[in-house]
Simulated scan of single mutants.
Amino acid sequence: MVHKTTRVVAAALLAMGMAGAQAAEVTLKAVSVFTMDTFFTKRFKQFVEKVNTEGKGLVQINVIGGPEAIPPFEVGNALRSGVIDFANTTAVFHANLVPEALALTLTEKPMSELRQNGGYELMDKIHREKANITWLARTTDGLQYHIYTNKPVTSADLSGFKLRGVPVYLSFFREIGATPLQIPPGEVYTALERGVVDGYGWPSVGVMEMGWHEKTKYRVEPGFYNVEVGFFMNQKSWEKLDEEQKAFMRKQIEWMESQNVTEHQMAIDEKAATEQAGVQALVLEPDVARALRTKAYESGWAGIDKSSPKYAAQLRELFGGYQP
């Protein structure tokens, strides 16, 4: 009878333990600022699938949608307030909250170096202080931006050009005389079609899938900056994870960042495809190219110097390194 009672109690405790383990599973509500069938959401979808497959009982990610769920420039506030837990986004879209985050695009140092030299810790600290957001991962590394235009470019003076831009290169576009306009990616095709803009800034990948090549004549070479897309979480949502869950997420993040090495070939392939589709590579003369890139980086860092006197020197030390 005693043995039977012991077995019953043990079974009950085991059941309670199992129930407790199941109850500990955390589901993170997530969005992507990019539509779900584009290049900059591809890695995110792979990450979510891997987490949901390997993280049963620990962590699951529920993707509620792309920009149709929350407009890109509102995702930062949604993260800060806890409306969502997790976002596949770029810090460019929440630079109004964390202007220092633009250093992520200005840097030419790989993520592996930033994790070693203290750059990652500093940027994560700033995000936590200013926006209740924690920076988890970088999912693009080594891709450049380009100016795409329907008007020829022969100098570093683009006076009279109307270019679609985002915060990270608004100062640069103004520095070269262009008029920058902030337009969500989903509205760029129509803006080109109607002549609202003469061109746009965009990475060396993704033009074809957006369909913008149909309304674009030139891609200016060389490119500039280091395209930044990554994973960000609400700070409180991250802190609610227990140590096992955090360790699991860090392991998945390490895997995700290890995939960045394939991007250079993707850029080469897409450039070839866009050229075949009619987008001409407009290669600037060396002096003009040097002047354009110098203005890009000098104006970018000047913006950080102005908006963040507290952290600008540290950011330049850890994230800088551009040579004209």
Rank of each mutant, 00 (worst) to 15 (best):
A78W: 07
P72C: 10
T53R: 15
G76S: 09
K45Y: 01
V51W: 04
L58K: 15
K42I: 06
T35Q: 14
G57E: 04
V59E: 07
A91E: 13
V48T: 07
D85F: 09
A91Y: 07
L79P: 09
K50R: 15
N77R: 15
N77S: 14
V59C: 10
F40S: 07
K45I: 13
I84G: 11
R43F: 08
N88Q: 06
V51Q: 00
F47R: 02
V48H: 00
P67M: 03
G57Q: 04
I70P: 05
G55H: 10
V92A: 15
L79N: 03
T41Q: 09
I70L: 06
M36P: 02
K56H: 07
N62A: 12
V83T: 13
V33R: 07
M36I: 11
V59R: 05
T41C: 13
L79K: 01
L58S: 12
A78Y: 03
A78V: 07
T41W: 09
T38W: 07
F44W: 15
V33L: 06
F86G: 01
Q60A: 10
S81N: 12
E68L: 03
S81F: 02
I70M: 04
A87M: 13
K56Y: 02
D85A: 00
E74L: 15
P71Q: 14
T89I: 08
N62V: 00
A78H: 01
E49R: 02
I61Q: 05
F73P: 12
K56C: 06
G57C: 10
R80T: 13
E54Y: 04
